[in-house]
Amino acid sequence: MTARSVVTAAVLLALAPGLGLAATMGQFATDADLVAGDRASLYGGGRLLPPGLAPDRPAPYQFAFAAPVGDDLPGLPPEPAYDGPVDLAYGAYQRGAYEAAYEAALQQSARGDPRAETLIGELVERQLIAESRAGPALEWYRMAAESGEAFALNRYGMALLTSDEEADNEKGGVLVKQAAEAGDPLAQFNYGSLLIEQNPGKDGLKLALPWFEASAEADIADAQYALSQIYPALDDLPEEKKALWKFWLRRAADGDHDTAQLDLALALINGRGMPRDLEQGVDWLRRAALNGNPAAMSRLAYLYSQGIGVREDKETAATFYLSVRRLGLIEPDMEELVDGLDAETRTEAERRSRALAQRY
């Protein structure tokens, strides 16, 4: 678990105990028997269907550009001239040329460039360049942090927060705060989470709120989800701000935050705080389940077993239940369903469950 994951889990547990089981993932299952629909659409997501069944409706919000047959497309406007600095290392990194990025960053770091030092740290941390060749990522982050580079301040600070040494923890908190004050959105989320950890109860939520708001505006899904939990919990907020919990929950869900997708699904299915919409709720539950959320898998398995909001499908129910059972969650009713399957259906459910597990 990364340092950031530790803090993310801490804020989730502070806001909604029990949700720490869910980890945000960013991939859908791609087994052809599991998913049909527009997988490229982050909004529409994939749709879990029984084998061989086509979707009963298209995925929402698909757009296409069309021009009359035979007409030429309009020309593109000329690109404005650029005479600013060119960062060869980051340019290579963005193109996926990691070897070239490392070599360029190494040259730039020799001239004391903190951005280059940060980039080398990230290349090593992501295992794109071997640590045996470049040295520890933490050392590169430390050097860049000494120059005040915000991303490196956050990464190095978060690493120190996982240390067993109290002095390291204290220094780590200071560095994360500096990164947050410098405008790094991940650091703003992390610092807000630290404030909650250090100040239990609603006082901590109030202290963290402006940091989460800044991070959420920068599209950090963890911060958006945190706002969806904090706004209803603070009684002295203006009503118009409290009502924004739904907006931020939807933003986090659109950003593939699986716990937000689960919460949105349950709100729609139960009509909690928004109009009841079983179909949309089940769609969001599928997305959360396909993103590896165990609570969503468990609930979706039950819906398929009973035919609630979906066609009854014992094989698909077993697919999701077997996936969540690997995590040690046993449900007697679902055990009975799996035991009652014929050998061929059970084998296929196990195959589909293994395919799903490979995606998270």
Rank of each mutant, 00 (worst) to 15 (best):
G37V: 03
L341A: 08
Q107W: 00
V282R: 09
T24L: 08
L234G: 14
A152I: 12
T24K: 14
P58C: 11
A16R: 15
K171H: 12
G135V: 10
M25Y: 08
Q178S: 15
R57E: 14
L13W: 04
P238Q: 08
P55M: 09
Q280W: 01
A40S: 15
I129P: 07
G75A: 15
L19Q: 14
S132L: 12
I308P: 00
V69F: 01
V11K: 07
S228V: 12
F65C: 06
E335N: 13
R47N: 11
D31R: 04
I196G: 04
G91L: 05
G328M: 13
D342H: 12
E181F: 03
R126P: 01
E170C: 03
Y360R: 09
E312V: 07
E103M: 08
L329G: 04
P332W: 00
T345L: 08
E117L: 12
Y43T: 11
E217G: 14
Y321R: 03
I269Q: 05
A116N: 02
Q127D: 12
L119I: 06
G18R: 12
A16H: 06
R287L: 13
A357D: 11
T30Y: 09
V69G: 00
L160A: 09
T345I: 06
G52R: 06
E279V: 10
E125H: 11
A218Y: 01
P50D: 01
L160E: 05
L186N: 08
E350Y: 01
R115V: 09
S163N: 08
Y231P: 03
A221V: 06
D263C: 10
